[in-house]
Write a protein that binds this DNA or RNA. Structure first.
Lengths: 191, 191
DNA sequence: CCTATCCGTTAACCCAGGTTAATAAATTAC
DNA sequence: GTAATTTATTAACCTGGGTTAACGGATAGG
């Protein structure tokens, strides 16, 4: 029984004991080394994941080969490229493990079964999507309203724990600037 | 009976005739003049709308009072600040009618009733949210990967019809630059 | 312990968009 | 049809991040 997973789902809907068992059985445990990919850009994201342990980053690759880190997920969070997962389109992002990571995975078809089989399954699907939607919108808002300097401050505020788990160039990429520029920002802030 | 509305919903789920009637009855018709607000920043978005006729723009207001246009919706599209609507939080965007506009409105509670009362109601809630999610993600992607010039070209491509319905400064705001800069972009492209 | 590699900072120069203000064009009002 | 207002363009100057390359510190491997 995947307790962390069941606990997270239980934040959204009520589950009977039988349903907890049934759900646990749909998830397969996958282990990844640092640097391994959960998903590569261009692939269809066929499984949704729940991070049992570890840390992943999402990035897009520009035409010139540069990659831009757009998000992070850590233990006790769900991970997948939801847009690709939903409509079986090629993913526009890669998801890479940047620590040794354990992910519980469920296939698209099994998740659809979950929506049907579990009493409040459809509601869970709706709520999880609504949750992800709100996150996505906040992201848009951040990009629209904030300067790189503010985004850096916000990153420090929101992910204080990740600062020590991440190399600086992932942070600069997340903030939307190049490493030299993040250095300048840090210098400005230090005064 | 609101036929346009029912048609749109029928793209997502099957509806019985009785359900079509029932749904139609939950929506109230509201009319707006050019410049009127469907929603103001800071208010909670308590109704979801379906635009029968007209055109609205979404904008956020920065601390310095400047507003940034983040999206448009036109006839036959749903409109609301979904994040605010979902969790009753103050909206971070305003929605303003920029043409005389007719909107069919349903309250939050009635929509929850719809999820329960209509056979495939929960599924509709999930699918509409998944649809909005994919749109939001595309928006993030656009901001991340594209320069203002590319966003302008994409705007021309995606909303050719809106070019003539919108003043230029809404377009420049949507593209993410100031009017003088959009002029420079247009000049560059003209050569 | 020394070397090679990686990473973060710094400097110099470049460029796109911001800012401000003036002007021209297009709408709207009367 | 003319005046008033709003909107679009242009010019001059400013600013912050990009680019490239050099340097220094840290880390890892031998």
């Amino acid at each position: 029984m995947h307790h962390h997973l069941i606990n997270q789902i239980s934040h959204f809907i009520k589950l009977s004991d039988a349903e907890k068992e049934w759900i646990s059985d749909r998830f397969a445990t996958r282990r990844y080394e640092k640097g391994d990919y959960f998903l590569r850009e261009g692939q269809v994201c066929r499984e949704a994941g729940f991070i049992e342990k570890g840390l992943v980053r999402y990035f897009v690759t520009k035409e010139d080969g540069e990659d831009l880190t757009v998000d992070f997920n850590k233990e006790q969070e769900f991970t997948c490229n939801y847009a690709s997962f939903l409509d079986h389109s090629p993913s526009n992002t890669s998801i890479q493990c940047i620590e040794p990571t354990t992910i519980l995975c469920i296939s698209y078809d099994d998740l659809q079964q979950l929506y049907l089989h579990v009493e409040e399954g459809q509601k869970f699907g709706r709520l999880i999507c609504e949750y992800l939607y709100v996150l996505a919108i906040k992201k848009v808002d951040t990009i629209y309203r904030q300067q790189p300097e503010q985004r850096y401050l916000q990153f420090l505020d929101r992910y204080p724990e990740l600062v020590s788990r991440l190399p600086q160039y992932y942070i600069s990429s997340y903030v939307g600037v190049k490493p030299p520029s993040l250095s300048r920002i840090r210098k400005r802030l230090a005064t």
